[in-house]
Design a protein around this nucleic acid. Structure first.
Lengths: 230, 230
DNA sequence: CGACTGCCGACTGTCGACAGTTTTATAAAC
DNA sequence: GTTTATAAAACTGTCGACAGTCGGCAGTCG
């Protein structure tokens, strides 16, 4: 046993360049430092970040698989531009996944799951009162990730995670979502109630309503369909 | 660039090395030339294929995002090993996606879609009569891809495609699926009937049955849960 | 006989460079 | 002034190399 249990390996920063570059790019895209459709120069990026092109390329491929970038052969990588139709598709897929998840969850709703979700709603409500919009979004997503997790199918969660990157993009693209702390709270409480009731129909109704609201906010902020992202 | 001598290098034609390497690896994994859990040496691969390590690494990252490989930092890439639980999860997610798709499709079932699906079933039946198991699987998947496509949400199709890689892995892992050309035919005809009826409930029932049958065949071929793939 | 230490080979992470291609800038012709 | 042809610049795809790290093995000590 080389390492004692006291000092976890996380103490050593072993994050490789690829992940760091990927994180940087993700943040930059979400914060719109790179505009949708813009081309990213590998050379420029490697100069800016002080690394060689290899990790930049690998990071770009990673973001491509996450739907944030698109690669065109011999042309380079471009920031994904989503149009209205694609927004709809993202939310439709999200609906698909969460419907399935909440029904699965209703079948196996444990005390542990209930506690975790209730606690997360509290955290979310607290976040909604503050000014940090980013944190509110993250806590919101985290609630849904928890729901997917306790549904018992890790692949479902993985698929959702693949979508969250684009969801953040959707949310980031519209100027200001809205803000109504109590709306957020009640919307999530309804989900908890439906789960507690154990009725699949109620769960489905609750999640349909919940996502429908979110969708409306986002779609409202999007213009007409433009250049397709892919 | 030394493109010399012998056998395996013939796999590579110089146009897009990354994709070619990815295709080669995919085939090799599905055909079990690399066993589940086995580690892949970047150096060895680049020697065998006659390319440098850069495209091998990028291809490996691609396959990682498709769930065929797993990367462990400083250790390299390993062939994904799926256990019984993960098989279940894959099929559960597939069910989720296809239920949603077939209901969406039922709402907007065009003549064009109907023709395309009917034609594909014919192709599939023809393939089922032959000896080429691989082709039968591909035609089967293609039918489902068409269904997802005509459902009108390209992201749904994309999610499914992300799953097909693992599905092929599932199917490849079990020795011989079965074989019953008429079973395959009728199973798909039922889907067409349900779609033609326009009843969402019938569609759901049909797809549940359809995927349930496929799942049973696969799960039967899988042993107890072993080493988790992730 | 078992456990620890230091060395060795193998391999990954990263880098800089070259070649071919695409894009842009420039010049000539209409 | 516009269009076509040509040259230069910029960039991607790919390669080979180097350094740091990991796992295993032999030697040493208890």
């Amino acid at each position: 046993m080389a390492l004692s249990t006291v000092a976890p390996k996380a103490f050593i920063q072993h994050q490789n360049l690829v992940e760091q570059v990927a994180d940087y790019l993700t943040q930059a895209i979400i914060q719109q430092h790179f505009l949708p459709g813009e081309r990213l120069s590998e050379v420029q990026l490697s100069k800016d970040l002080g690394v060689s092109r290899a990790p930049v390329r690998e990071a770009a491929r990673l973001l491509e698989s996450r739907g944030l970038l698109i690669s065109k052969p011999r042309r380079g990588f471009f920031v994904r531009a989503l149009n209205a139709v694609e927004f709809e598709d993202v939310f439709d897929l999200r609906l698909c996944l969460e419907r399935h998840a909440i029904e699965r969850l209703a079948e196996r709703y444990s005390v542990e799951a209930q506690r975790a979700l209730e606690q997360q709603v509290e955290v979310l409500c607290e976040a909604a009162l503050g000014n940090d919009e980013t944190r509110r979004i993250e806590e919101d997503l985290q609630f849904h990730r928890l729901m997917l997790h306790y549904a018992g199918n890790e692949r479902l969660l993985k698929a959702f995670d693949g979508l969250t990157h684009e969801l953040r993009l959707c949310i980031a693209l519209i100027t200001k979502t809205h803000d109504a702390p109590d709306t957020i709270a009640t919307s999530h409480f309804k989900l908890l109630e439906a789960l507690a009731s154990g009725s699949p129909a109620a769960c489905r109704e609750a999640i349909d309503y919940h996502i429908g609201v979110a969708r409306k906010f986002v779609v409202r902020g999007v213009g007409e369909p433009g250049e397709p992202g892919s």
